[in-house]
C-alpha cells in the first residue's frame, strides 16, 4: 500500500466531482500556500480538519483514508527527524517548541497529501485532460496524457499475460543470483516492448483514419464552464488565503506552550 493508492480515480457522482478541475486545482494549491505560511501547530490542525467535510461530501472516505494511511509512514519519519533534530539542538531537552515544530511539519505534509488527494480522487483523468486543453496546453500533450492514462490498465494486463505465457514455458523469475534474475525478465520485456510498438502503430493508423491532423482549429465535445458551486469554492478559497495572510501579519497565533500554560493555571 502506498499513499499513491489514494490518488487513483474512481467514478462517483458527488457535488465535489462536478466542480471544475481548474477551481479544484487552485484550491489545492492555495491550501498548500496557506500551509507554508504557518509553522505553528494549531492553524495547520485547523487546515487539516476543515477539509474533512469535503472528503465526506465527495464520498471518497475509503480511498482518502487509504491515502492517509499510506502517508502515515512518511509522516512519522518527518515527525521523528524534526523532533530529534530540535531535541539535540536544545541540549537533549524535550521542549514544547520542539514538539510544536515537529507536529507542525508533520501536519503541513498531511495537509498537502489531503488536499491533493481530494483533487485527484474527485477529478477524472478525462476532466484533467480537458482542463489542460482549456488552459492552452498544446492538444498533442493533452492527448498523450489521456491516452497514457487509458492504456495503463491495458498494458498492466498485457504484462501479466506475457508473464503467464513465459512461466508456462518453464521460466522461473526468482531463480538464480541478482544478475541472472534481471536477465530472467528479458523474455517478458521484449514481447511487451514489441507489442507496445505494434499497438502504437495501430493507434496511429486509427487516429489518421479519424481525421487526426486537420490543421483547422479543433473543437471539443465538452466545455469547462464555471458554475455557481465553482464560484462558491473559489470565493471560499480566496477568503481563506486573505484571512490566513491577515492572521499571519497582524494577529498572534496561539502556540502549544501558551495553551498548555493557560490550562495549567
Amino acid at each position: 500500500m502506498s499513499m499513491f493508492d489514494g490518488l487513483k480515480y474512481r467514478r462517483v457522482f458527488s457535488p465535489i466531482h462536478n466542480l471544475d478541475p481548474r477551481v479544484k486545482f487552485t484550491y489545492a494549491c492555495i491550501i498548500f500556500i496557506v500551509a507554508i505560511l504557518f509553522w505553528e501547530f494549531i492553524p495547520l490542525l485547523v487546515l487539516f480538519v476543515i477539509q474533512v467535510p469535503f472528503v465526506i461530501l465527495a464520498r471518497v472516505r475509503r480511498e482518502w483514508l487509504r491515502s492517509m494511511k499510506g502517508a502515515a509512514f512518511l509522516a512519522s519519519v518527518i515527525f521523528t527527524v524534526n523532533f530529534a533534530v530540535s531535541f539535540i539542538n536544545s541540549g537533549y531537552m524535550i521542549t514544547f517548541v520542539a514538539l510544536e515544530y515537529a507536529l507542525a511539519m508533520t501536519f503541513r505534509f498531511l495537509v498537502l497529501v489531503e488536499s491533493f488527494s481530494i483533487f485527484f480522487l474527485t477529478t477524472s483523468p478525462d476532466h484533467l485532460g480537458l482542463a489542460l486543453e482549456q488552459t492552452r496546453v498544446p492538444y498533442e500533450f493533452c492527448f498523450a496524457f489521456t491516452t497514457a492514462v487509458r492504456f495503463v490498465p491495458v498494458l498492466a494486463e498485457e504484462a501479466q499475460t506475457i508473464m503467464d505465457a513465459q512461466k508456462a514455458r518453464g521460466l522461473e523469475l526468482e531463480k538464480g543470483n541478482f544478475l541472472r534474475r534481471i536477465r530472467n525478465y528479458i523474455p517478458i520485456l521484449i514481447p511487451l516492448i514489441v507489442s507496445a510498438i505494434r499497438r502504437s502503430l495501430e493507434l496511429a493508423e486509427a487516429m489518421e483514419s479519424r481525421a487526426w491532423g486537420v490543421s483547422k482549429k479543433r473543437t471539443n465535445l465538452y466545455e469547462l464552464k464555471l458554475h455557481g458551486s465553482d464560484y462558491v469554492l473559489l470565493t471560499v478559497t480566496v477568503v481563506l488565503l486573505v484571512a490566513a495572510i491577515y492572521v499571519r501579519l497582524y494577529l498572534p497565533v496561539p502556540r502549544l506552550a501558551e495553551i498548555f500554560d493557560y490550562f495549567a493555571h
Binding site: 483523468p125 478525462d126 485532460g129 492527448f143 491516452t147 495501430e202 493507434l203 487516429m207
Partner: peptide, 8 residues
C-alpha cells in the same frame, strides 16, 4: 482495443 483513445 487499439482504436479507442479516450477515457469515455
Amino acid at each position: 482495443e487499439n482504436q479507442l483513445f479516450a477515457l469515455s
